[in-house]
């Protein structure tokens, strides 16, 4: 399939990119293009203009920031996997990133592109929610910070305005002595999560003292399961507790049913991945 005609401009700087975006006229941002180009080819997306931000240096890279990390929006998944900072501190992000797409997708695909695309079955939104990340957005009108929990608003829908660019994601440090994990069960052909759980825990003498839990793949967006996470605190994460946490995690959620998995099966998988992710994280403490 061949995309419809569009114009293409390469941003020469961040300012230049924001200026182009402020012009409106149906401009779509492209970095790696691994969410967008398949949509263009099927003509599901027909933007008038593509703004290529891949060459803007300050949008790429991973650095230490306030004892946590700052990850540029145009950082590729490959660069995340190669980052010692991520590997040493954020196992949950390593788990998720190594399972995104395939090597070629990870070589070109960017974390910010995936986040801005907001596929409801993408892995990284759940990870960023569980880590309590916040996103820096910019436009010609100014800057603002949006917490991950306020960013994802539905299927392919985010807090980003038409003229705004996602600049970077700030990830706070894990609690001292804490550990994290991501476990998903994928649709076999696409590799997208039917159900995925991202967990951050802290333990004291085998008892969980802190927990953050987020799920993806189950509904129109990734979401935090705060009430379920609270159920885990004060327990030793025994099988009965994990079952209760898994059920509570999707309480009140409208679970997706489609040709890949009916809603009841996804509900079952949610409990499975929640239990496995919590165990995996605790084993790493």
């Amino acid at each position: 399939m061949i995309p419809v005609q569009f114009d293409y401009v390469r941003a020469t700087s961040l300012n230049d990119a924001l200026k182009t975006l402020a012009g409106g006229d149906g401009t779509k941002v492209i970095a790696g293009g691994h969410s967008l180009i398949p949509l263009l080819r099927f003509r599901l997306a027909q933007p008038a203009k593509l703004l290529d931000i891949a060459g803007i240096k300050e949008l790429s890279g991973i650095s230490e920031y306030k004892r946590g990390l700052r990850i540029g929006a145009a950082t590729t998944y490959r660069d995340i996997l190669d980052s010692a900072l991520v590997r040493d501190r954020y196992q949950v992000m390593m788990d998720a990133t190594s399972g995104i797409g395939d090597v070629q997708v990870r070589n070109r695909g960017t974390i910010g592109g995936g986040v801005a695309h907001a596929d409801p079955a993408a892995d990284m939104p759940g990870v960023l929610l569980a880590l309590g990340a916040s996103f820096n957005l910019r436009s010609k009108r100014g800057k603002r910070v949006v917490a991950a929990r306020d960013f994802f608003q539905g299927t392919f829908a985010t807090a980003l305005a038409e003229d705004e660019l996602l600049i970077d994601m700030v990830v706070p440090p894990l609690p001292r002595g804490g550990a994290s994990a991501y476990v998903s069960i994928e649709q076999a052909a696409s590799g997208y999560a039917l159900a995925g759980a991202a967990v951050v825990v802290k333990c004291s003498r085998k008892t969980v003292t802190e927990c953050s839990l987020a799920l993806t793949g189950l509904s129109d967006r990734a979401f935090l399961a705060e009430a379920a996470a609270k159920l885990l605190v004060g327990t030793k994460a025994d099988p009965d507790t994990l079952q209760r946490v898994g059920a509570a995690a999707v309480e009140g959620i409208e679970i997706t049913g489609d040709i890949h998995a009916p809603a009841e099966y996804r509900r079952h998988l949610a409990a499975v991945v929640v239990g496995r992710a919590i165990r995996a994280a605790i084993d790493r403490v």
């Binding site: 293009g33 490959r78 090597v103 070629q104 070589n107």
Partner: peptide, 9 residues
């Protein structure tokens, strides 16, 4: 780096 030339303009 290995890249899908069908998914690159």
């Amino acid at each position: 780096r290995a890249t899908k030339s069908c998914t690159t303009l």
